[in-house]
Amino acid sequence: MAATTLRNTIPRALRSASAPLHHPSVTAAATQVRYNTQSATDARSPFAQAGSHRTTKIPDFSKYRGGSTSGNKVFQYFMVGTMGALTAAGSKALVQDFLVNMSASADVLAMAKIEVDLSAIPEGKNIILKWRGKPVFIRHRTAAEIEEANAVKIESLRDPQTDADRVKKPEWLVMLGICTHLGCVPIGEAGDFGGWFCPCHGSHYDISGRIRRGPAPLNLEIPEYEFPEEGRLVIG
């Protein structure tokens, strides 16, 4: 900033004949000496002789320049690059921690799974559990019911799904007990297809929880579940 203003004042100073003696003219030493000669073409450059009686001694910097130029460059880039890498790693960890902070907390996760002891459910019986505030139907199906579920022609269904797609073990049917129409809770072992019947608007579900008749558009939803060991079921 200061250098440019000074440089701009130089031609003006030259043009005015009554320029005072102490008006600035500048020599930049220790960096490359550069003169703005273009704007002063009409005048004799005041710096023409500046070199001859220069009073400035440029210090010797060779001691600080170190070894080879290329070695210096590699070292400098290495330092800058290392700083960039560490900063990147640090900010990645920071952002990651903030994002992890937003995910479900341990108490929510602890409530998100329920365990069921399957040995308490006799064959051909339904139980209803609460999971994340919603009812879950678990049915221990008999062999006849499994056969019946497999016998259905998929092409005839509104929401075509094979029974094998809807169960992990054929004898255990696990579904969310919420009618896909308007969210009522269907009644078990009722309806025209031996499965579930929604009393609100009369949707009939079969023994695989598939919609067969009534206004509901989709089959009953299947939650995430797994059998960690024989006789135990974990939903969630």
């Binding site: 250098a3 003219s25 500048v26 020599t27 930049a28 030493a29 220790a30 960096t31 009686h53």
Partner: peptide, 8 residues
Amino acid sequence: RKIVYTPP
């Protein structure tokens, strides 16, 4: 860097 004034 050093800026030096040399009077003309």
